[in-house]
Amino acid sequence: SASLEDVKTAVLGLLVILQTKLYTLPASHATRVYEMLVSHIQLHYKHSYTLPIASSIRLQAFDFLLLLRADSLHRLGLPNKDGVVRFSPYCVCDYMEPERGSEKKTSGPLSPPTGPPGPAPAGPAVRLGSVPYSLLFRVLLQCLKQESDWKVLKLVLGRLPESLRYKVLIFTSPCSVDQLCSALCSMLSGPKTLERLRGAPEGF
C-alpha cells in the first residue's frame, strides 16, 4: 500500500504534465506521457489490482482522460474550469503507423480551432504528436469488463456518452463501437458483474 501511494503521486504528476505538454513542443512528450498513463491502467486490469488506493488511481486517471476532446481538424483539447475547450495546435487524435513515428509534419500553421486557440506554431513546419484515442478506448473496454470498484465504473459510464459525442475521437483511430456495445450488453446481462463490484448501489 505504501508503494502504491508513491505510484499514485507519480500518476497525478503525469496527469499534470500531460495537461501542460498537450499545448507545448515537442509534441512527442505529450504522446509519451499519454502512453505511460494508459499502459499503467492496463496493468491494473492485467494484474487485478483491487486495493482501494489502486481504485483511486484509476478513478483520477479516467476522470482526466475522459475529458479529452477533439475538433473537426482532429486536434485534441481539454475543457477549462468554465467548460470551454482549448484545442492544441500540436497534438492530434489520429492513429499513425509505428514506422512513421509518433509525430508527423505539417507544412505550416493550422487553421484556427473551433475553441480558444493555443499558442501559434513558431516555425514554418510543426511536428504534430499522435495521441490516438484507441489506446484509451481499449482500456475503457477492459474497465467495462473487469472493473471491481463501483465508483470507477460509475465515472466511466457517466463520462462515456459525452466523449462519444466527439465522433472524430472514435473514427480517426481503430476504435470498435461494436466491441463497446458488446461490453456494455455483457456488463448488464452477465451474472458476474454484481459479484465483482464493490460498493454498487442496492438494486443495481
Rank of each mutant, 00 (worst) to 15 (best):
V33M: 04
K151R: 15
H40E: 01
R86K: 10
R32F: 02
L141K: 02
P89W: 04
V131T: 06
I53N: 02
G118R: 15
K21L: 01
R196H: 07
G190V: 07
L136D: 01
T172Y: 02
L160I: 06
L164I: 05
L128S: 10
P174I: 03
R196W: 04
V16L: 12
L43K: 12
A30C: 07
G83T: 04
G13V: 00
G77P: 01
W150A: 02
S148Y: 11
S111Y: 14
Q179V: 08
C91H: 11
T9C: 11
H47T: 05
K81V: 15
Y95K: 09
L43E: 11
S1G: 07
L188W: 08
Q179D: 14
V16M: 12
L78N: 04
V92S: 07
H74L: 03
G13I: 00
E5I: 08
P112F: 09
K105W: 12
L188E: 01
K104L: 12
G190S: 12
Q179R: 08
P52A: 10
L169F: 08
D149Y: 04
D178A: 08
T172E: 04
V139G: 06
K8M: 11
G190H: 12
T114K: 14
K21G: 01
T20R: 12
P116A: 12
S55T: 10
V139A: 12
V33G: 02
L25H: 15
G190K: 09
I53M: 08
R165L: 06
A125V: 12
D6C: 07
L68F: 08
K167Y: 04
C143Q: 01
L169D: 03
D94R: 08
E99L: 09
R86E: 08
T9E: 13
S130N: 15
I17H: 02
L184T: 04
S48H: 12
Q146K: 12
S163P: 06
V152L: 02
R138F: 07
G77Y: 04
L140S: 05
K104Q: 14
T193N: 07
R69F: 02
A70H: 04
K192V: 14
D178V: 05
Y95L: 12
G83D: 06
L15D: 03
S176A: 10
L153E: 01
H40P: 00
I41A: 01
V16A: 15
P117V: 12
L22K: 02
L194H: 09
G199S: 09
C143A: 08
V177P: 06
F204P: 11
C93I: 05
E162F: 11
L110E: 14
L136N: 03
A200F: 12
L140W: 03
S72D: 08
E195F: 06
R127H: 14
V38N: 06
L22F: 07
C185V: 07
K104T: 15
P113T: 11
A27F: 08
D82F: 09
Y166N: 13
S3G: 14
S163M: 13
L78K: 05
A183H: 07
A200E: 07
G190N: 14
G101T: 14
T106G: 13
L110V: 14
K192H: 13
Y49W: 08
G83A: 06
T50A: 10
L14C: 09
V92Y: 09
P117Q: 10
V33S: 07
H74G: 09
L37A: 06
G158C: 10
Y23F: 09
Y49I: 03
D94T: 10
S1Y: 06
S56K: 12
L68A: 07
H40D: 00
R58F: 00
R75Y: 06
F204V: 10
W150V: 04
D94Y: 05
V92P: 03
A54V: 02
K154D: 08
S186C: 08
H74P: 02
K8I: 04
G203H: 09
F204D: 04
A54W: 04
T193S: 07
K105R: 12
Y166L: 06
S88Q: 02
D149L: 00
Q146V: 09
V84K: 15
T193E: 07
R138I: 05
H74T: 04
F137Y: 07
T193G: 07
L68G: 03
L155R: 09
V33D: 00
K104W: 15
G129F: 08
D94V: 03
C181K: 01
P161Q: 14
Y45S: 00
H47P: 01
V33R: 00
C185Q: 05
A200N: 08
C143H: 02
K105E: 15
S148L: 07
L169T: 05
V131E: 03
A30Y: 03
L194R: 06
A70L: 02
P79L: 07
E147P: 00
Y45H: 00
M36T: 07
R196G: 06
S182N: 09
G83W: 04
K167P: 09
S1K: 04
S1P: 05
G13D: 01
A125S: 15
G199L: 06
S102T: 14
V92N: 07
E147T: 00
P89D: 12
W150Q: 02
L194F: 12
K192R: 09
R159F: 03
I41S: 00
I41C: 04
S39Y: 09
M36G: 05
E35P: 02
P174H: 08
L43Q: 14
V11Y: 07
W150N: 00
E5N: 07
S186Q: 15
V7M: 03
I17E: 01
V7H: 01
W150G: 01
I170Y: 13
R69Q: 08
G115L: 12
D94H: 07
L78F: 12
V131D: 03
Q42Y: 10
S134D: 06
V156D: 00
P113F: 15
